[in-house]
Simulated assay, not measured.
Amino acid sequence: MDISFTNRSRGGSRRWVFHHRDTSDGMSRSRKPGWLKTRPPSGREFADIRETLRDHDLHTVCEEANCPNLGECWSGGEGGSEGGTATFMLMGDRCSRGCNFCDVETGGMEALDPDEPENVAEAVAEIGLDYVVLTSVDRDDLPDQGAGHFAETIREIKARHPGILVEVLIPDFRGEEELVEKIVEADPDVIAHNVETVSRLQTPVRDRRAGYEQSLSVLEYVDRVSEIYTKTSIMLGHGEYDHEVYRTLADCREAGVDVVTLGQYLRPSESHLPVRRYDHPGKYETWRRVAEEELGFLYCASGPMVRSSYRAGELFVEAVLREGESVERARERAHAVGN
């Protein structure tokens, strides 16, 4: 496989020219390749996290979206040798949007639980996390789309656990900057928002209320008004072309995104979008090199089983923010865990 890109300027504008020689790293959508393997949930850490979540009536995106890495993350890595991690999903288990790739239920919205911020903070302490990831469903039904509730959860965790690192994966809040500002003011350590796929495929993949430019504007706003690390994620396998993936990465970097993840889309059920292509792990490694070495992302986690919340990416941020490691050393440690 050989991927290269040339930046050519004509009249002050940029045009990316794509050269590609691909030698069998794509597979038919009709059969799942052998490298897409996960281990079933098990171990004490897994059981403890599940029990704690049930005790506090909390949801995780790990369960609601049927994440394939649930067993590894909750069980604490290979053999349960590391502490388990979980991504808390705020504001209920039903989303106001209906993206065609996502397994979270749509509609039937319920009132927010006013005790949820406190319950999440208590669960964080019980599980023993020092790095917590928060995400949420979309709540277009609420006047502030849930931004205030999200921000209150961040503040509650930070107040109770001053040394903890908080990463948030936020909705687009329909691009309304004053709502994004509520998240910024709560001062998380990382703000993530996913563009999900390339520009051309936004409409079949995502809900019509989402959009490529809207998502980029959220990321650009956070970068413009704060020093908070920004992050995004791209799914592969929807029928995108390589030059479109490159253009998406370049657009995200231009918007100031620091960390990016790329992973294989897996169809949750027959009612969701079909997988158009499975790419070999070697191609994901190529995208990692392009993202880090050519485009200048601080870190890229790229692999078939990588998801937006991914333990190697969290390790990178933790190493840079908490331990003061250089970006290069933090990359090395994170890639060692990711592989």
Rank of each mutant, 00 (worst) to 15 (best):
P143R: 02
P162H: 04
E118M: 12
F173L: 05
G107S: 02
L134H: 00
V184A: 06
L165E: 05
S136F: 04
D187T: 15
F150I: 13
E105T: 15
V124D: 00
D115G: 12
L169I: 15
G175M: 13
V124W: 00
Y131M: 14
E152L: 11
D130C: 10
T106K: 11
K158T: 14
E176Q: 11
E116S: 10
P143K: 02
L165Y: 01
R160P: 08
D130V: 13
I164A: 03
G175H: 02
E126H: 05
L179F: 09
P162C: 09
A186H: 06
E105I: 15
E167A: 04
E177G: 06
D140Q: 08
L179P: 04
Y131C: 13
D140G: 07
V120D: 01
V184R: 03
I183C: 10
Q145R: 10
V137K: 04
K158L: 12
K182A: 09
I183L: 14
D115T: 15
E177S: 11
E152M: 09
E116N: 09
L129P: 05
L169P: 03
L134Y: 00
A121S: 13
D187L: 12
T153N: 01
K182R: 10
D172H: 04
E177Q: 14
G108T: 10
E110I: 15
T135Q: 06
D189S: 11
G148P: 07
R155P: 09
D138F: 13
E126R: 12
P162Y: 04
A121C: 11
L129F: 05
H149Y: 03
D141W: 02
D144H: 02
V120E: 00
P188C: 03
I170C: 01
D113M: 10
V184N: 03
Y131G: 08
A121P: 06
E185D: 14
G107Y: 01
D187K: 12
P117D: 08
A147L: 09
G107D: 00
V184L: 05
E176N: 08
V166S: 05
N119D: 15
H149L: 09
E110D: 11
L112M: 14
V132Y: 00
G107F: 07
E176F: 07
E177L: 11
I154A: 01
D115H: 09
V180E: 06
R139V: 15
G163V: 12
P162A: 08
D172C: 09
Q145G: 08
E176W: 04
D130L: 10
L129D: 01
A121Q: 05
E116T: 14
A159Y: 00
V166W: 02
R160F: 06
A147I: 11
D138G: 07
D144M: 06
V180M: 10
R174C: 14
G108Q: 03
A123F: 06
T106P: 01
T135H: 04
R160Y: 02
D141H: 03
V120C: 03
P162V: 14
M109N: 12
D140W: 09
I164E: 02
P171H: 03
G148H: 03
V133T: 15
D189I: 14
A125T: 15
E152S: 13
E185G: 06
L165A: 03
L112E: 07
V184S: 02
V184Q: 04
R174P: 06
T135M: 09
V133S: 08
G128F: 01
R174T: 15
P117W: 04
V184E: 03
E152G: 08
E185W: 07
V184T: 08
